[in-house]
Each structure stands twice: as C-alpha cells, then as structure tokens.
Design a protein around this nucleic acid. Sequence first.
DNA 1: TAGATTGTTAATCGATTAACAATC
DNA 2: TAGATTGTTAATCGATTAACAATC
Lengths: 227, 227
Amino acid sequence: MSHQIEEAGAGISSATVSRLPAYLRALVDLVSLELSSVSSDRLAEHTGTNPATVRRDLASLGIVGTRGLGYDVRYLIHEIGLLLGVSEDWPVAIVGIGNLGRALANYSGLSARGFPVRALVDVDDDLVGTRVGELIVEHLDRLEQVVREHGIGVGIIATPGNQAQAVADRLVSAGVASLLNFTETALVVPDSVEVRRVDLATELQILSFYQRRTIAARAGTGVPLVP
Amino acid sequence: MSHQIEEAGAGISSATVSRLPAYLRALVDLVSLELSSVSSDRLAEHTGTNPATVRRDLASLGIVGTRGLGYDVRYLIHEIGLLLGVSEDWPVAIVGIGNLGRALANYSGLSARGFPVRALVDVDDDLVGTRVGELIVEHLDRLEQVVREHGIGVGIIATPGNQAQAVADRLVSAGVASLLNFTETALVVPDSVEVRRVDLATELQILSFYQRRTIAARAGTGVPLVP
DNA sequence: TAGATTGTTAATCGATTAACAATC
DNA sequence: TAGATTGTTAATCGATTAACAATC
C-alpha cells in the first residue's frame, strides 16, 4: 500500500508536494472536529485552493475518494503523513554558527518537526569547542567525519553567502541528501539533492518593493498611512 | 525618470519582482569587477536564469539596453535599487516574542537590510515590560498605539499559528502595509496588503518528502547513504 | 561593414480550473 | 431513485524560452 504510493510518487509535481503540509494541517483540524470524511470542496476551502486542484493532487498521490461521499479523513492523514515522513527523524547538522545559526541551534521547532540537531559546525577557531545549547561546535575541517558519525541526512547552511557553495559541495559529497539554505546564494547541486531556500534578505527586499508601491499609492489617493 | 519606472510598475509580474534581488546582487558583484556594461547572457548566467527572461524582466521595468553592447551596470543598479527601496528604512514591529520572535529581535540582518526593529509586542504579562536587546516588550493591547507611535510599516508575525490571523487583522486596520508571516497559517488580507510567508515548518516537511524518496532510491540502487 | 546583442513575437511548457459524465 | 461528489477531460492562464529582425 505504502509501496503503491511510492510508485505513484514519480508523477507528483513539486506544486503538489508544496501543498501537502497545508492539507495535512487542515485534516488534523478536521479530525479534531470528529469529521470522518471530507469533500474536496471543504478541503479546498480550508487550504485556500480550488476543489479541482485538491482532487488532482490526491489522485496524483494514488489516493481515491468515494463519489458522493468524499475522502476518508484518517486515511488521508495516514497517507500524507507517510509521504511527508512525519514519524521519521532526520538528523541535522548546522553549518555556520553566527547570529542565525545560533538562533536555529536553539530553535526547538526543528526537533519538534522530526529534525533533531545533532551537530554544529563552524570555521572560526574561537567558536570551535564552545558549547551552544547541548552541543559543542566542531571545526569545518571535520565536516565529513561529523556527517558520518551522526548519520546526518539534512544540512542547514547558515554561513556567509560566499561560502555556501563550498559547504554545499562538501555536504553533498559526504552523502547528505537534503539542504536547507539560509543564505542568499543560489546553490548548484546534483539533481538527486533537494535544496530548499529560506532567504530572509530576499523576502525583505521583495516586501520593500511592494511597500514602496503601496505607500506611494496611498499618498497619491490621499489614504492616510495611519488612519 | 523614476516616475517612468513607477508607471511601468503596473506591468511588473510577481515572478519578475522575486528575481530583482538576485539581479541586484549579481550586478553589485559585476561592478566590483569594474564591469561597466553587461549582456543579458552574462546576467542570466550569474543569476541562474535565461537570457530571454532577463531581457523581458528589464523591459517590463522600463529599462532599455543598447543593442550590440548590453545594459549599463550602474544604471541597472540605480534603477533596481530604487525599485527595491534599498536606501529607505521601513520601521518594523515584531509580534510574538517567543523562541523565534526573540531570535528575530536579535537578528542584525533586519536593520542592515533597511528594516529597523522599533517595537516588540506580546500578549504574555510575564514578558511585557521585560527588555529584549534594546527594546521593552509592549502588550498586545497597545498594538494600535505602537504602530502609530513608531510609524510601523512592516509587521512581523511570530505568534502561535492560531493567533496569526487576529494579529494580522489588527495590524492591517492600524495601517500596516506589509506583513512577514512566520507562522504556518495562510493569512487572508486585503489586496492592498502584501504578505510574504517564511514557513520553516513547511519547508522542513517538503524537505522530508524528498529526503524519504532519495533515501529510498539510494537504498534500492545500492548507493550507500554515506560512501 | 561585421559582430554582438537587444527587444519582441510566437511557440512551448506546466499548472490551474471549469465542466461534466461516472458512480457512490 | 435523487443528491452529492469524484475522477478526468479540455480550456485557460501565466510564465518561460527559442528564434530572429532590428540596430548599435
């Protein structure tokens, strides 16, 4: 059964994958309301998308509903949870223990989501050997050993942008399959490696673009910034 | 001149806007190499996109190049910088001073990017009145006054997900034009308000999806996780 | 002029969504 | 059976990109 879904996996678009977390959250809400089945209409409403998109997404996961009734909530939770690996743990290493890396190292949300932080790595000799939370910072020279020793599957890159690619290369060749990139650098990696980027600086600049336009528009139409 | 661009602004797609920060970064790199002009080919290479996309993006900004020569680097930096408001400051309030909000409050990158944090707001009476960095935490009840007093233009929401919408509603009606949403909740706001979402939990779950697939594939083909 | 590169058209692509027959 | 809802086709949409005439 799980295997069926894994095979169907080949046809799952990245757009679908990015909606899975929202589906799962909506479903967990629904089950706490004692709902046993849900229509694509309702699920779409809860996730801010379109019923046809929901049906298409679920079909691509190999999940079938019942005409006239909808989808079984618990079955959906089980299958989507399986796909998202909610019950599995992926050991994490954070590379770059500056302002941001330190915040991430102390962020309980990571292990709460199945990503226990098992190692902290930096290149700064003053930092190496110091304790951050429960861990001792290791030297970048030991990156490959660290990955091996802790079975690291996910690398979080919080270095300065100009070092991100070099770190990524080493993580990848050490066998790390997933990277979470907090730098502004667009990483180049083999197809088999998945990179997600969380780029605060870029988000802020995009926000700034719209901010300028909105303020200009409000000024133009006489709408006060603060009513 | 700036006005020309502002008018052309109506036709700038969100996809184009999201590429502007990368263009700006690449251009700053190029100018430090003493390059005075750049072709769409080269700019595309530096930003990981396609030359035709670069030309189309720049045309939509009202920026023209010179056939046979390319685009003037300093002019590009000036115009894109203007659009992204790099020389302007947008005062920020952070709502929700938990683990994440505290990290953001201490994150120097915000003011470095033109987003000085001017106020911290929380609902917890034990937290209100305490100092975080240079600021004293204010009570959520005073949110509207805080926005007015500090001329807050950008709200960062780092509350629990179930309170995010209520906080957003109050920020919007107080006149805040941009929101940076760190919760898993999809906010509903008027069209005139821009929301960017930075959702670590969702990114991690998406990463987990690909992580499971990659590990399964490697196991299947006998490629070791750690070579 | 010859070579380079833009600006823009038209083709292509991928994702979304309306619509509806199938069927519970 | 009547009403509800799926599963899927076909239309639509928006964005990307190849191609090439215009032109520096």
